[in-house]
Design a protein around this nucleic acid. Structure first.
Lengths: 344, 344
DNA sequence: AATAGTGATGCAAATGTTTTCATGATAAAT
DNA sequence: ATTTATCATGAAAACATTTGCATCACTATT
């Protein structure tokens, strides 16, 4: 009777095949410099020969590291977080980590469960979007002491490390642009603000600017819609299809702005002649719209890469645990969807 | 001296705190029905009290299951796989699994490395996009015997289970639509075909149709560009900005189609009056374009959900290992970007 | 030639669970 | 009242690694 030769090879069978101890095999994979080149070669050959695939779980359990990093985003729809996720993933992958991804649909209770699940898998580090998170989420992160990073929004007073733009600044830039062009009749289209610090910061700072210059902000021009082109388009059709229209529309992000543009086009309105539209985000594809979308650029790629780098560094120097805040500048990108307001 | 009371709680400390054995604690988490309600309550209380978070790695190592499912996609950019990933992720999450995501940038060598990495983490199942994969990838999947599923393309002769649409059919539908409208001067814009069975199937079946009706397919009307709105727009600007234009453009997917539309608009051409444009995919947002994009619908949501369900089922009935092929129908969606060719 | 130092390797303990098997208690059947 | 069946629980082996410590064979130093 052959003793379980059919089963999946483990480190012991590799060791046997190579004629060394399991310790040596382990070292070949984790500290190759500690083993003599000739033995290393033998072991590597044995690994290939029997098709051995190391078991990360065993490594994880030993308390070393799981070689995984968790990322929790509100949504994967559209391009909202696509560039960010892509850049983040590419960067952690390059460093040998694997990404554990979770999305919660803008539901903080769901987010807590996902965070727990990622912690069960002993992710070496964890990234969340924004700073609005449940009490329980903050608590469990504190207790577990895993390196954690809030991406996308920067706030000086955050209780966890954060990296991103100042969304209040983003809103202000967008609002100022419209005001500077002379617009005083203004509509806004934002998603639900609760549990979404990014949208809240953008909108409230923009509103402050509008009100400080006494812009007209009729209630029927202020809409709420999820981040969805389809739903935004419907909302804006209703907003724009009336005798009295605002001359400009500030949208919570570029996805909503796209919906707004297409609703205007649908109504036979010209953008920007009949209505100016500005977004926030500068998502992939916004530049290529015709006319190009005026928006506030959030450097998603750079943020994603920097976020990943920072977490990887935190994994390496464990126990450091310093609170880091990194602020990226956002920037107005003037393209074709905004124009001077026609004199009243 | 308190013995390591500061360290992270493990199952032993929970057991002590609850006054039961570790076996009972384990059962509370994995087979709650096997333990008496009163003890269960005690244990659950102890778990909450000391903030215990179970260690999935230990479970994985024991050979049970890792509660993870791997998904390898070519890209996360744009909305190409956004709906699919979202649906897939939501479904596996609902069943208690965590998603390990990887993207390889349409590079099959990179894909192999990612697959290996996911196998190191002992994913309970693995999903890939399409049927073009390296020899080594197929081999390692065979050897490991992990449930695997190819998503997005259906082919009767696939050597692994697959679920998706028949991309040749998709190309045929699109081509037929243009031909039916009377178009005989046709341009195509596709990504590189090698290592991309989906694009290859779409294009070759479409070309067959075009040639069978003797359509004019000038070489300068046939372009190759990655799946990128920006790059597609550039390519199409060049394609369309010439004295002799095709009357219709078949695009490899909706992202390319968007680039094509905006390039036409940029050139002052009207879509569909001056040029008809058809995409493939019906991505989120395609319907809301103005005019709405005519395309071939691939039901990404349903495919993603079905794929996840099938893999979960395969995890549950391990050792089954039947080869399954599931074909979803794709369907022409006529919207505003195509119109009858002007007579001769 | 004897000793110290170095570098590669092996042994075995440790990691945090799950599960099989055994045990004891309680309820049901005679 | 005794036997049998059922049920809840515990003890301990098993899982696949990593790593501290010990060992052994050399080389370098005196």
């Amino acid at each position: 009777m052959v003793k379980k030769e059919n089963l999946k090879p483990d480190i012991v069978s590799v060791a046997k095949l190579a004629g060394v101890s399991v310790a040596t095999v382990s070292r070949v994979m984790n500290h190759p410099d500690l083993v003599q080149p000739s033995t290393r070669k033998k072991v590597e050959q044995a690994i290939r020969k029997c098709g051995y695939i190391r078991n990360r779980a065993a490594q994880t359990i030993h308390g070393r590291r799981s070689a995984t990093i968790g990322l929790v985003v509100p949504t994967l729809a559209y391009t909202i977080f696509a560039e960010l996720v892509q850049a983040f993933n590419d960067t952690v992958t390059d460093s040998g980590f694997t990404l554990l991804l979770a999305s919660h649909g803008y539901d903080l209770a769901a987010e807590y469960q996902l965070v727990r699940k990622l912690l069960e898998h002993r992710v070496d580090a964890l990234a969340l979007i924004g700073l609005d998170h449940g009490q329980d989420t903050y608590r469990v992160l504190r207790e577990q002491g895993v390196p954690v990073l809030a991406i996308w929004n920067y706030a000086a007073n955050s209780e966890i490390s954060c990296i991103g733009v100042d969304n209040a600044e983003a809103g202000r830039l967008a609002a100022n642009h419209l005001l500077m062009l002379g617009h005083r009749s203004i509509g806004t289209v934002f998603p639900a603000l609760e549990d979404n610090d990014r949208a809240r910061a953008r909108k409230s700072s923009a509103m402050d600017r509008f009100m400080s210059l006494d812009a007209e902000l009729r209630p029927e021009w202020q809409r709420q819609t999820p981040y969805s082109i389809a739903e935004a388009k419907v909302a804006c059709l209703d907003l724009l299809d009336r005798a009295e229209r605002p001359t400009a529309l500030l949208c919570g992000n570029d996805v909503i702005a796209q919906g707004a543009i297409f609703s205007a086009l649908r109504l036979g309105l010209s953008v920007p002649r009949d209505v100016s539209i500005i977004g926030i985000g500068d998502f992939a594809g916004s530049a290529e719209l015709e006319p190009g979308l005026t928006t506030v650029r959030i450097p998603a790629n750079r943020i994603g890469t920097a976020a990943a780098r920072q977490l990887i560094k935190a994994v390496d120097n464990a126990a450091d645990g310093a609170l880091l805040g990194t602020r990226f500048e956002c920037e107005l990108v003037m393209r074709g969807t905004t124009i001077t307001a026609r004199p009243g």
